[in-house]
Nucleic acid binder design. Sequence first.
DNA 1: GTGACAATTTGTAACGTTTCAGTATATAGA
DNA 2: TCTATATACTGAAACGTTACAAATTGTCAC
Lengths: 349, 349
Amino acid sequence: MDRHQTEKDDEASGQGRPTLKTLAFMTGLGVTTVSRALKDAPEIGAETRRRVQLVARQIGYRPNRAGVRLRTGKTNVISLVLNTEREIMSFVSDIIYGVSEVIADTPYHLIVTPYSRSQDPLDPIRYLVETGSADGVIISRTQPNDPRARYLLERGIPFATHGRTDMGLIHPYHDFDNYAFATEAVRHLTGIGRRRLALLAPPVELTYHSHTLNGFTDALSEVGANEIPFNTVSVDHSIEQIRMRTAQLMRRDVRPDGFVSSAAAATLAIVAGIEDAGLKLGRDVDVVSKQSSDLLHLFRRELLVVNENFRLAGAELARSVLGWIGGAAPGSLQSLSVPTEVLAYRRPD
Amino acid sequence: MDRHQTEKDDEASGQGRPTLKTLAFMTGLGVTTVSRALKDAPEIGAETRRRVQLVARQIGYRPNRAGVRLRTGKTNVISLVLNTEREIMSFVSDIIYGVSEVIADTPYHLIVTPYSRSQDPLDPIRYLVETGSADGVIISRTQPNDPRARYLLERGIPFATHGRTDMGLIHPYHDFDNYAFATEAVRHLTGIGRRRLALLAPPVELTYHSHTLNGFTDALSEVGANEIPFNTVSVDHSIEQIRMRTAQLMRRDVRPDGFVSSAAAATLAIVAGIEDAGLKLGRDVDVVSKQSSDLLHLFRRELLVVNENFRLAGAELARSVLGWIGGAAPGSLQSLSVPTEVLAYRRPD
DNA sequence: GTGACAATTTGTAACGTTTCAGTATATAGA
DNA sequence: TCTATATACTGAAACGTTACAAATTGTCAC
């Protein structure tokens, strides 16, 4: 009965990671006081607060994530949900870096939650929510009527979408202004004398399909040029498919003299198709393409490009999610990125 | 004294996520029994085991990660450590997908831990170890004498490296056989009559620099061809730099008639530089390049390519780390990926 | 019927954190 | 001097899990 209570608490100075108990032992305070002192709670004396924080910094105290998570439910995790087959390559790496940049000096970790073609896109979201694995979610490939956004809104889980929805519901998003991209592309092409334009659009199910298509057709009627239908393929199709369809199209009597392409990889295929048909880029046809890294001008100098910055998108999305978690109004966390002008090749200095 | 102990445990049937307590309540067993029944402990009766597992499946029980992690220290997390400035773009996305594929039906989550140019590469590793944030780590950009590998070995943290080290220490790795790549490339180039070859190598500090270089020079002396030094740039340099240096090189009296390039993006720059100097690919010079996605042949049909599969690398690395965590010998978790042969353009069917 | 033994099952404590409901001390008001 | 009130601090309980030590039950030999 003598040594009994004493022993168990004592060795708080042990060599393992410091915990609140360690700090309590070192400062001579109670665990509760230390906990509150570290988060600037009001009822802690100014000197005590400073003292605790000093010691904590000195010994490199870091709150145990599992402890916090178990007690509070807060995971300090943001999940990026990605389709393992269909995402644009540079999108994945750039968006991850953008997110990382923003969460770098926060306690947040980034987890990547993949889903494959065969799965319901709602599956990974359900998993995250049911297991409480993240405080916030970032989703891509957003649809006008997006079940994932609806689901997350219903459960009150903070999230942000890359691309907008169209359900009359308010949530954070970041989007590239694809309407503006398409109109600018059409204006540029007609400005250099092209009259019969084809659009390689995003997949129909995604919201930015109609944004792009509307910009394209609105600008066409504005300038009085013609659309050559090219909707048997989208940027989601394989390089080979796009190449083949392009070649078929270019062998017709009425063929486009201008293309607008929503993705860089697809543009490579379009150009290949054009050349398969024996035509020449810049002479017989011009192509305006979005790109996210600066490679298209190395590919063919005749290409016309508009840049989309995915790293920025990642940063904005992360900021939005953190903002929502922090209590900001979802409606105030929406942003739209304005396209650069259409850029022709410039010789390096 | 009558209702006192009773109340607190009772409402285990509540609507929140089911826990062991919920299962215990439903089966009429103790929490401990349920816990052990779920992990097939030997001292649980066969029928009890089945009953518990059935109920658990029915109500969709999932162990609380925070609870497990707090109690056992097991995080069920694999961390992929990436340099946010220098990684190859397709590497990031493919390796993530490769890892995801392998951990998909395990309880593991993948977290991405980034570090930037300015940081010591050891920083993120230290962070992971000190905070106990992961059960296993995957690192890239491996060096012959890699402080990260050494550090992790010292602490006994399971990890796998993309690329080998050369410290006389044993650890899991996955590597592409860059020696074989370089020798094959040289043999192919000399086979089509090229005699003066230049190598665009990986950065000197990485292990695969010397693998590549050795393969290159060994094959050169084997076939009796000459090296044109080109070591002012590496694949880590900017597109503009490589392009400029290539153009300079190609304007010299003694210029290469063949290139071996260790990365696809760099190859675009090499070709641009060749063309800047007024020379023609396939006629004046041939280029053999590694690529990780099938785009180089769209770029220039004259290019000769060797494929490196990063998705496979990700999968192998994940398998290695999980293997080590599962108790396998580190030395048994090493793999080398054999290059494809050198591939010329093939017209699509 | 008793004791020994194996086969099952169980309560308690602990991981590190935060919240709740306090206690102790000082300060002020009467 | 006493009660009220604010200030500063504190122990106990809980989140969900697993390890430990112990308890309960049944079986069998004697």
